[in-house]
Nucleic acid binder design. Sequence first.
DNA 1: GTCTATATGACGATAGAC
DNA 2: GTCTATCGTCATATAGAC
Lengths: 215, 215
Amino acid sequence: MAGATRPERRRRSDGETRRAAILDAALEIFSTRGLHGASVDEIAERAGLSKTNLLYYFASKEELYVAVLRRVLDIWLDPLEALDAEAEPADAVRRYIRAKLALSRDAPQASRLFCLEIVQGAPLLRAELEGPLRSLVEAKAAVIGGWIARGRIAPVDPHHLIFSIWAITQHYADFAIQVDAITGRGLQDPDFFARTVASTEALILAGLGLRQTDA
Amino acid sequence: MAGATRPERRRRSDGETRRAAILDAALEIFSTRGLHGASVDEIAERAGLSKTNLLYYFASKEELYVAVLRRVLDIWLDPLEALDAEAEPADAVRRYIRAKLALSRDAPQASRLFCLEIVQGAPLLRAELEGPLRSLVEAKAAVIGGWIARGRIAPVDPHHLIFSIWAITQHYADFAIQVDAITGRGLQDPDFFARTVASTEALILAGLGLRQTDA
DNA sequence: GTCTATATGACGATAGAC
DNA sequence: GTCTATCGTCATATAGAC
């Protein structure tokens, strides 16, 4: 009875950490190879177990893919929910831009997998997009509309404003290879990150008719 | 000798139209399924011939993919080259935005295939990005820098400006599914297209410190 | 839970007749 | 140039021992 591992409960729930490791590895592979380009073998190797063993935790490649995608979607929706109607418009927008760029820096693979899925038509996410995401965007578009009505910002199209912020901030994750090929740098570089935040804030705030304190 | 088809020259070079049809079909399939998700069978069917017959024109799937990608890259690089140093900055930028958005409307699949390739790391395009594209961007960044030096526009970071324009304009092609899920519309809709052009121009020109005549 | 087979099917590519 | 038939490969998924 000495040092034997008790099957019922080791140092921590082993299954959970196993699953988490698989999900991490899967995100990495799926985001660079796509669903069809990725092989279960490769993901398993990256996660440090065998293919058959992986398929013990996730019954199929598609099931694993969906699990990864669901996780990514949660991460993705999060920052927008924080856009606050009560805050000063400039502050709220600035915070949102920073949060999105930080996400592009810290979770580029999640951004890329999301991008791949959307570009390919998102057969799996369609429902999520038309339901929760659409509702959330409508709510936030109304917030922006309220700012306009009260004369706090210039009369912009709220939807296009949101799309523009998404497009710019995600560009630095999704097209990181291209940005690097052209500038030799990326968001990992603190100086480049700061400049990107500043440029994006300046552009968007100018678009809202809110002058910057200057650069 | 009446209506028989002369093998040497029919109504038009048949091989060329065949190849073009294959390339069109391949763009369609590759841009929605990705390289690995697409099957030669599917492309052949879409192009109206058999799999073996397709492989008579293109020796392998990869060869076909590269041919499609090369075509896409040409389309993609084109509009930026037109950015004119001598023109009025506002006019030049407006023209560029319109050209890019028109491309997103008229060749969304090309944009999507390019996006897929870049997001996945562009092993094939790396050289093109670091060579011709980088040079082109440097040249155009210098044009923008010249405008700034002469006090024609606000002092923005030329690279980030270019990236922002790319990001916004391509977003409407690459994330068309998402845009549609949220707004129920897309660039095909003339009214939506016009609004998108107006919003994007207003945003970018404001960022350059160039006031609009209003909307 | 993890392993060693192995079943199964899809797909890229080739051979060879016409 | 186009067809039919087929080969070979790879990868998902399962069976069953430990």
